[in-house]
Deep mutational scan, measured.
Amino acid sequence: KFNKELSVAGREIVTLPNLNDPQKKAFIFSLWDDPSQSANLLAEAKKLNDAQAPK
Rank of each mutant, 00 (worst) to 15 (best):
V8N: 13
F29V: 14
A51Q: 10
S30K: 13
S30M: 14
L48A: 03
D33H: 06
E44Q: 09
P35Y: 03
N20K: 09
Q23F: 02
L19D: 01
A9L: 11
Q23E: 03
K4W: 11
F2G: 10
L41G: 02
K24G: 00
P22T: 15
P22Y: 14
A39R: 05
E44D: 06
D33L: 14
A45N: 01
S30I: 10
K55G: 10
S7R: 11
D33Q: 13
E12T: 09
K46D: 01
E44A: 10
V14M: 14
D21N: 07
G10H: 15
A26I: 09
P17N: 05
N40L: 12
N49Y: 01
V14A: 11
K47M: 10
P54W: 03
N49V: 02
K24M: 02
L19I: 04
D21S: 07
A51V: 07
A43T: 09
N20T: 14
L19W: 01
E12A: 11
V8L: 12
W32L: 11
W32A: 06
N18W: 14
L6S: 05
K47G: 04
L6R: 04
I13P: 01
N49T: 01
A45W: 00
S7C: 15
N20A: 09
N18H: 13
R11N: 08
S30G: 08
L16F: 05
I13L: 04
L42F: 02
R11Y: 13
W32N: 06
P17R: 07
E12S: 08
L31K: 00
L48P: 01
A26Y: 11
P54A: 07
K1I: 14
W32H: 05
K46G: 03
P17T: 08
K25S: 10
D21M: 10
E12G: 04
K46L: 07
E5F: 08
Q52R: 04
F27E: 04
A26N: 11
T15M: 14
S36N: 07
L42Y: 02
I13G: 00
A9S: 06
N3L: 13
K55A: 10
E12Y: 13
T15Y: 07
N18T: 01
N40E: 11
F29T: 15
A43H: 05
P35V: 04
D33R: 06
K1T: 12
Q23M: 04
A45K: 00
L31H: 01
A43M: 08
S30W: 13
A26M: 11
I28P: 00
L31Y: 02
S36Y: 07
L42P: 01
A43P: 00
S30R: 15
S7H: 12
R11F: 12
K55S: 11
V8M: 11
V14K: 07
N3C: 15
P35N: 02
P22H: 15
G10V: 15
L42V: 12
D21V: 08
F27M: 01
S38H: 13
A51L: 12
A39S: 10
Q23D: 03
K1L: 11
V8R: 13
P54S: 08
I28K: 00
K25Q: 14
Q23R: 00
N40G: 09
K47I: 09
L48E: 02
D34Q: 06
V8T: 10
K25M: 14
K25Y: 12
P17E: 07
F2L: 12
L31M: 09
D33V: 07
I28T: 01
A53R: 09
N49F: 02
Q37Y: 04
R11G: 05
A45C: 04
D50R: 07
S38N: 07
L42T: 03
S30N: 11
S30Q: 14
S38D: 05
A9E: 09
D33T: 10
Q37G: 05
F27T: 00
K55H: 11
Q23S: 02
D33I: 10
Q23G: 03
N20R: 08
A39D: 10
A51G: 04
A26S: 08
P54Q: 10
